[in-house]
Simulated assay, not measured.
Amino acid sequence: MSDPSPHPTAEAPALPPVRYRVSGMDCAKDAAQIERAAQGAGVASDAVKVSAATHVMTLRASEADLPAIEAAVSATGYGFERIAEGEDAAPAHQDPAYRRALWIVVVLNLGYGVVEMVGGFWAGSQALLADALDFIGDGAITFLGLLAIGWSLAWRARSAMIQGVFLGVLGLGVIATTVWRAFAGTPPEAGLMGLFGLIALAVNVAAVLPLLRFRKGDANMRAVWLFSRNDAIGNAAVVVAAGLVWWLGSAWPDLIVALAIAGLFLHSSWSIIRDARADLRER
């Protein structure tokens, strides 16, 4: 009597994918960290994928295992929001609220940039002129970011690269004109300088607030955030410089702040270019 052949083992049905929007991540390294956290909770390496481009985590796990997995990935410090079946998982940069925030930034920065440029010449302040250039550059580059919303990650990264180079050139230009003014300048009108600086600070706070929730994202989103953040820091510095000019009766506080704003330009330029290169390597 022959031995009966073993019955073939039925394969377990494939688990449906579960998707989550991830907030707070910046790059592929963050995506890998989240994947490792999920794997530590028992998810197979081929059953979890976090996209640095779309900020979406896709995993295959049973509903019974999800609470433990969610707790493990939440411990990484990033935010997770489950995407309902059939719901669009559009990246954060395609959020309509982000478009509205960008339009607010464009209108406020271009409009007040022109006003502050006139005020800088009127007050004879190099710091105000540098800040006005920052306003105008911010508005122009944010408009480029608005155009780039529908582009692929690679082209958005190239857009951010242009923004970074532009910001670097702007910083070098401010340094050159400030050095020239150091040999030929007279103390600016402190009252006008402080007034325009205070108004600029209020305008920038109004522009930065809508962008706070979008400061994490791809290189293009981070570039827009850095431009707006720079403006607010520069405005506060201009107000302080105006007080020192009034107190000391010297042009040096004005020139020093202009150089500091230029240094902030160069630092952010490097950050934007670095992030853009990382996104391009990822593609």
Rank of each mutant, 00 (worst) to 15 (best):
residue 89 A to W: 01
residue 92 A to L: 14
residue 138 D to I: 10
residue 28 A to F: 05
residue 92 A to K: 12
residue 252 W to Y: 14
residue 96 P to A: 02
residue 81 E to A: 14
residue 194 G to K: 02
residue 146 L to A: 12
residue 90 A to T: 09
residue 185 G to K: 08
residue 113 G to P: 11
residue 24 G to W: 03
residue 232 A to D: 07
residue 227 F to N: 04
residue 56 V to R: 00
residue 265 F to H: 08
residue 179 V to H: 12
residue 112 Y to F: 15
residue 229 R to E: 11
residue 79 G to E: 01
residue 72 A to K: 09
residue 137 G to C: 02
residue 51 S to L: 01
residue 82 R to A: 04
residue 82 R to S: 06
residue 144 L to K: 03
residue 125 S to V: 03
residue 75 A to K: 13
residue 161 M to A: 06
residue 191 G to K: 02
residue 45 S to L: 00
residue 84 A to S: 15
residue 219 A to H: 11
residue 2 S to C: 13
residue 144 L to G: 13
residue 44 A to D: 01
residue 113 G to D: 08
residue 117 M to N: 12
residue 164 G to C: 06
residue 39 Q to V: 13
residue 79 G to F: 08
residue 203 V to K: 08
residue 113 G to Q: 11
residue 273 I to D: 09
residue 236 A to S: 02
residue 254 D to V: 06
residue 108 L to K: 04
residue 100 R to F: 14
residue 183 F to P: 07
residue 95 D to F: 01
residue 258 A to K: 03
residue 226 L to D: 07
residue 277 R to K: 14
residue 279 D to V: 10
residue 279 D to H: 03
residue 85 E to G: 08
residue 8 P to L: 07
residue 8 P to I: 09
residue 272 I to R: 08
residue 99 R to G: 08
residue 181 R to A: 02
residue 11 E to N: 10
residue 257 V to S: 02
residue 5 S to H: 15
residue 6 P to H: 07
residue 245 V to E: 08
residue 93 H to I: 09
residue 181 R to W: 01
residue 188 P to G: 12
residue 84 A to H: 04
residue 192 L to M: 12
residue 65 D to N: 05
residue 119 G to V: 01
residue 190 A to Y: 06
residue 184 A to D: 12
residue 53 A to S: 11
residue 19 R to W: 07
residue 2 S to K: 12
residue 182 A to D: 02
residue 263 G to V: 11
residue 174 V to N: 00
residue 191 G to D: 13
residue 11 E to K: 14
residue 157 A to I: 01
residue 125 S to D: 04
residue 73 V to R: 01
residue 255 L to I: 06
residue 66 L to V: 00
residue 240 V to A: 14
residue 199 I to F: 14
residue 233 I to K: 07
residue 267 H to A: 15
residue 53 A to I: 07
residue 104 I to K: 11
residue 44 A to R: 12
residue 27 C to A: 09
residue 220 N to Q: 13
residue 142 T to E: 05
residue 272 I to C: 05
residue 256 I to G: 01
residue 82 R to M: 10
residue 234 G to C: 05
residue 55 H to A: 02
residue 186 T to C: 10
residue 227 F to Y: 12
residue 121 F to N: 02
residue 221 M to C: 04
residue 11 E to W: 03
residue 160 A to N: 09
residue 109 N to C: 02
residue 167 L to R: 01
residue 131 D to Y: 05
residue 144 L to P: 05
residue 46 D to Q: 13
residue 223 A to I: 03
residue 161 M to Q: 04
residue 57 M to K: 07
residue 209 L to D: 00
residue 269 S to G: 06
residue 222 R to E: 10
residue 101 A to S: 14
residue 100 R to G: 14
residue 138 D to L: 15
residue 19 R to V: 05
residue 222 R to L: 07
residue 241 A to I: 02
residue 205 V to Q: 09
residue 239 V to W: 05
residue 153 L to F: 00
residue 164 G to E: 10
residue 259 L to W: 00
residue 55 H to K: 08
